[in-house]
């Protein structure tokens, strides 16, 4: 019974971690679908978002005293505005110059962007780890002996809200439909009068937005904020591949499954089988290689037909 309760608790915590993976994966899936650029810097965008939010919170805090929910919300709004600008800048810096480059160059360009961002943040913020503020504090919720932290719950709920918003945006609004059309066939979309370049810019802005929000949600869960947070973005890639790279449903489902796998292997499995403890931090990569060997298209991916 104890194992069972433990499993449920780990699953919930895993779903929370998985929601973060899902949000990161959602960010680069959006970019990949629209522009075929694989953004390896998504985790770093998340890190930048978390740092910017931290900066805003501390700035307002020194003016008004203790951090409160109100201050957090103001800082949140500030970070969102920052994400808009940041995404727009990235479109100009990364997307436009690399439009028709081979995939090798594009991958290396985004990797170099991730290196640059990590180094810059470390330089500006200093080498110290920071303790981020969360409006939910350390509160927990206890149901029948199953303990859920409010942080995890907030992450899950925000992720659900975000996904619903995105779903609405993509299927019901004019710009969302334009984005869909562009990712289907940019040339035809251009001929239909869709401003393709502006759509690409919008995609990058959206991706930076998702990354920033997931960074703000994740930061208090990591309890310490430092530049290694960016590496978490790399783990979202196996999650996206598991779900099927390039599929939005796949990104979300794959992210959650990967989060659950990771937490359970870290908890119950490590407790019962000692050797699993050795491979806690590489379990996602083992899953990745297994998925690529068995079913490279993932759970929800469409099989690609190669055209000569």
């Amino acid at each position: 019974m104890e194992t069972f309760i433990g499993l449920i608790q780990e699953s919930i915590s895993g779903i929370a971690l998985g929601s973060i993976y899902a949000l990161i994966a959602l960010g680069f899936t959006l970019i990949y679908k629209a522009t075929e650029v694989v953004n390896f810097a998504q985790g770093e965008l998340m890190m930048v978002g978390a740092y910017v939010n931290f900066y805003f919170v501390t700035t307002f805090m020194t003016q008004n005293g203790e951090p409160t929910v109100g201050i957090f919300l103001i800082a949140f709004a500030g970070s969102i505005i920052f994400a808009f600008v940041f995404g727009w800048v990235l479109d100009w810096v990364i997307n436009r110059p690399l439009k028709d480059e081979p995939i090798f160059s594009v991958i290396m360009a985004t990797i170099s962007l991730s290196i640059i961002l990590r180094a810059l943040v470390a330089m500006i913020a200093g080498p110290m780890s920071l303790i981020p503020y969360s409006p939910f504090g350390n509160k927990i919720l206890s149901i029948n002996g199953i303990i859920i932290s409010m942080l995890d719950l907030s992450i899950i709920i925000s992720a659900i809200i975000l996904v619903i918003l995105f779903y609405y945006f993509f299927n019901k609004t004019k710009w969302g439909v334009a984005m869909q059309a562009t990712s289907e066939d940019p040339v035809a979309a251009q001929l239909m009068g869709i401003p393709v370049k502006r759509v690409y810019g919008l995609v990058w802005i959206f991706s930076a937005l998702v990354a920033t929000i997931s960074g703000i949600l994740l930061a208090p869960r990591m309890s310490l904020l430092d530049t290694s947070m960016g590496f978490l973005g790399l783990k979202a890639f196996p999650a996206a591949v598991l779900g099927g790279f390039g599929s939005i449903t796949g990104a979300i489902v794959g992210g959650i499954i990967m989060g659950v796998i990771e937490t359970i292997s870290m908890g119950t499995l490590s407790y019962h089988f000692g050797w699993i403890k050795e491979m806690n931090d590489i379990i996602v990569w083992i899953v990745l290689i297994a998925v690529l060997m068995v079913k490279p298209d993932g759970l929800f991916g469409e099989e690609k037909v190669k055209k000569v």
Binding site: M108, A109, S112, L113, S114, I115, I116, R118, A119, L120, A122, M123, G126, P127
Partner: peptide, 15 residues
């Protein structure tokens, strides 16, 4: 203090 000049420089060079 701190900051990883090396990776910043290499990232910029590659970019």
């Amino acid at each position: 203090e701190g900051g990883d000049i090396q990776s910043l420089l290499f990232g910029l060079i590659m970019f």
